[in-house]
Design a binder for these strands. Structure first.
Lengths: 215, 215, 215, 215
DNA sequence: TATGAATGAGAATTCATTCAT
DNA sequence: AATGAATGAATTCTCATTCAT
């Protein structure tokens, strides 16, 4: 289990040194952006919550939008980190013989990541529609890459005779939206409910496999 | 096909008469709210786009938020219309013997509705997180009701031996997020792509059935 | 004397209707821009002096710079009005047989104009160096045009044998800076001194004529 | 030519030693003040252009205005240096028998000075209107002194029968504004043009002499 | 019903200056 | 001497809302 972390571990960890105040600003901003949305959060409110002068925010971030991007962009990158490693197929081949093992490992891993980044993820989801740059960034760098890799993966397991003969894109969309749906509901829509995460994941994987798996 | 409309037909149709200007205002607001978000759209921009004076907006809507609610609330109501009719089970019993027939009919119907209300639906999805009243309204009146009815439906088809023995809530969540995922991707995330709607729906239903269907 | 006004009368008089508040804003802005300079005058100070809300300024002028330009540009146009009338030579021919008569009439006329527009003229002079658009506007539309017309005029009086055989541009520059110098000192640098305007003008014309006149 | 330098040589040469950073700051400030004006140049921009930290500026100059004055005041003093030497009349008597010789020598000398200090001179001219202290300083110490000495000079040459019988102040103003006009146009307004300096000066002197000279 | 000028609270951002290191 | 993070007052500009016409 520990070794799985190796595969999916976060690839981008080079954070610049933050001053104490800057840290406070980012924390305050994350909390407020998630709560009320970027557009409805004023820099003066952020400053007050962070316990700094308003000017201090603009010493570290040229604009309010810069602050948003500095929060959201790294998370976007980390979100797809597991999919950008080279030769993912070979690695998976060695590690996960069955599609469902891979699915479960991946869900667990991304869930772990989301648990730690739930708030920023919420901001990401909420703000993407309103910021063309974010949308673009997301589409080109994230959605595209995940889709490609995932399709390759499905092809891979298809060849091994584990997946039924449906168009790979459909399988991918189905698998992805199933997982995305679970995580969205679990962490964004109804985070306050009691969840038996292990069981939910098992069920989801099981149902996906029933849907696309071959005997 | 005409009869299906009977079941899912829209229940709330009592619109007050709009003046021409008011119509223009609402149209402009819908377009801009969907595009840039409620908080980032100014009443002056709406007025300009609608070709009316700024004051005119406030003749018809006491506040900017009133304008938002007047747009979004009716759509929320209509969205669940199919699920609030009494004795839905009996009706379904008579009409759709199989779970998958029901699923397909429902998806087709809601898709039709979304096609006509895509923009407002987008606004609804985008603004819910930022407006506690909307969130509350949505949770209590919409999600709750759909979940209840849907669970009853699943129990209904379970009794008929068409659904495997998983906890009904899990089946509901799985079915719902699969459908919701499809519609979300289709109409909110990637509306510009070319879609073979009929086929996508069939595939989705098929996979859901593979996931939860018996035999 | 009244007829001279005909020749040099202001050509651009189409002012849009100002609201009372707008008038107040412009008056306050003119006074303060002249006194402290554009950059050192804040819109809140202008608003206070004009007795309006700060927002009102931006209802009438999109930006602070717009306010400046709306004040300065028309004056720039009016300043050269006398030189843009067609067939100025013919008119002059009929009216002023001698170069010095023309000079005196023109100085008197422009002096009249400056007396009425001293403050805006001061702003113009002071702000031109700091605003590339103004500089450009001034160079291309004003300086250029005056220089051309003036050169033609000098040629005209040269042909009549009234001006000595120096390069026309030099004569123009000398005449112009002599006049400009007088007006600058009189109205911008030392407006508070007691001046015998008639006499100063006569002296200046006399010295210019001594400098460039024949015989 | 070397001896002329004696007469007009700069009187104030005691500059304090500048650190390298300080030098950079002053250079940056001069360039930016001349370009955008004092009020529109921020200390942070100066710091960036000078390649120093913002705080460093305030190590050397208590305030931003101090920085301006430290740049502008010495130039103001040097500008009138030639006129503050005692017994200028006697010196001139010995050196320049004719008014026009004196004029030409002086213009050449001041032109040399301006050529080396054009940028600071531009700042001086541009900022005087906005800073009462500067204005005061200029009027009392500069304009006043030049005017007095110049008047004495004109009287001096009048007695020698070289200048016609006009009121000396008028002659002074005329001569001064002619020269000032030339230098202003040459170095502030149109510095980029090609100038035949020698010739322009000769022409100006000639025209002044025609204007005020006897025979 | 419709207008649009006017408002004042508040938004993002800039700025000269201070101070601990 | 030099730094650069921090400040808070001030600046330009926006915005939802009001109201006399």
């Amino acid at each position: 289990m520990a070794e799985e972390k190796d595969i999916f571990k976060q690839l981008f960890d080079q954070e610049e040194p933050f001053t104490e105040k800057q840290q406070k600003i980012v924390e305050a901003a994350i909390e407020m952006f998630a709560d009320k949305g970027y557009a409805s959060t004023s820099t003066s409110q952020i400053a007050k919550k962070a316990g700094v002068a308003e000017g201090t925010i603009f010493r570290h971030y040229k604009t309010k939008k810069d602050l948003l991007l500095s929060i959201v962009s790294p998370t976007m990158a980390k979100l797809i980190a597991p999919f950008v490693i080279r030769d993912i197929n070979k690695v998976l081949d060695a590690k996960y013989e069955r599609y469902e093992d891979f699915l479960k490992a991946m869900i667990l891993n991304r869930q772990e990541f989301l648990k730690d980044n739930m708030t920023v993820f919420k901001i990401l989801i909420q703000e993407i529609p309103f910021h063309p740059e974010l949308k673009e960034q997301f589409k080109e760098h994230i959605a595209q890459k995940i889709f490609e890799k995932f399709t390759a993966l499905v092809d891979h397991y298809k060849e091994k005779g584990q997946i039924i003969d449906l168009p790979s894109p459909a399988v991918v969309r189905f698998s992805a939206t199933s997982i995305f749906g679970l995580l969205l509901v679990r962490y964004v829509f109804l985070p306050e409910e009691d969840w038996d995460d292990e069981k939910e994941i098992d069920l989801t994987v099981q149902m996906i496999m029933n849907g696309v798996g071959k005997e």
